[in-house]
């Protein structure tokens, strides 16, 4: 067995993989939230659709995206392997277990992670899969008057089935034609049960990261009198409060104002 293989097969090596993939997913969430804040622009999805088109047609981002999908799978797989090993380490459980000092989230990472995995599967099949592979997406045309800067949107049906996107300038009008992912967002977020599921999933994100973010630093051995309080502050306020609230605001705002 090579030394690297031995390292990553050890208990600490597996924990390191959990920490690194987890932190990578955390950085992705920042980008995901930042980009999706475009949904709050009241422009009939112009900025959002152009952003979605950019993400799916810019090769470096494609590469990072596949790295991301791999991270999700590895994080879930290693969680499963570690959980099985942990269960094996205690074949007979205790009859009485008192309330311990350990936080609720730290003891329920598996449950929270399972909710998140289910959410990611549904979320990706509804948006990512449909956008890239289903062929059932509608298109939209945005006409921007270059002299006044006013954008108007119209329905657009491409003649070719292979059509992806186009940008052209005609008579002082910039015409942008892209897949209308914004329409899917609007449809999905008009169903109350869908909105509820998203809000619950964001609750799970909150509790998962409340423990997970700072725990990843502990696993990597980055504990320091000066920096650990900063890590804990960011993990609590940014990753467990601001970010889930930002994500949850999207379905809620759409449900109440745009449907």
């Amino acid at each position: 067995m090579s030394e690297f293989k031995q390292t990553f097969n050890s208990s600490l090596g597996k924990k390191l993989i959990m920490a690194l993939t987890g932190l990578f997913l955390c950085t992705f969430l920042i980008v995901h939230l930042g980009g999706n804040l475009l949904l709050f622009k009241n422009d009939d999805g112009f900025a959002f659709n152009v952003y979605a088109n950019f993400l799916t047609h810019f090769p470096p981002i494609e590469v990072i995206a596949y790295l991301l999908y791999l991270s999700i799978l590895v994080h879930a797989l290693y969680a499963l392997i570690l959980t099985i090993k942990n269960r094996k380490a205690r074949p007979v459980g205790y009859a009485v277990q008192a309330k311990s000092d350990a936080s609720w989230s730290s003891k329920n990472m598996g449950l929270l992670g399972s909710i998140l995995f289910l959410f990611i599967v549904i979320h990706m099949s509804d948006f990512w899969y449909r956008y890239k592979y289903s062929g059932s997406m509608n298109y939209k045309e945005y006409r921007t008057d270059l002299s006044s800067g006013v954008t108007q949107s119209v329905e657009f049906a491409p003649t070719s089935t292979n059509f992806e996107n186009s940008v052209q300038t005609e008579n002082n009008f910039e015409i942008v034609r892209v897949k209308d992912l914004h329409e899917r967002v609007q449809q999905s977020f008009s169903q109350w049960w869908y909105v509820l599921f998203y809000v619950i999933a964001m609750g799970a994100v909150s509790f998962h990261l409340l423990h997970g973010f700072q725990s990843a630093f502990r696993t990597m051995g980055w504990v320091h009198r000066k920096y650990t309080p900063i890590v804990e502050f960011i993990g609590t306020w940014f990753f467990a409060v601001i970010m889930p609230l930002g994500f949850a605001a999207m379905p809620v705002v759409y449900f109440f104002t745009r449907s």
Binding site: S11, K15, L82, K85, N86, R90, S103, S106, S215
Partner: peptide
């Protein structure tokens, strides 16, 4: 033995 999840118990 099992693996640490930093619960602090």
């Amino acid at each position: 033995f099992g693996n640490c999840t930093n619960t602090g118990a």
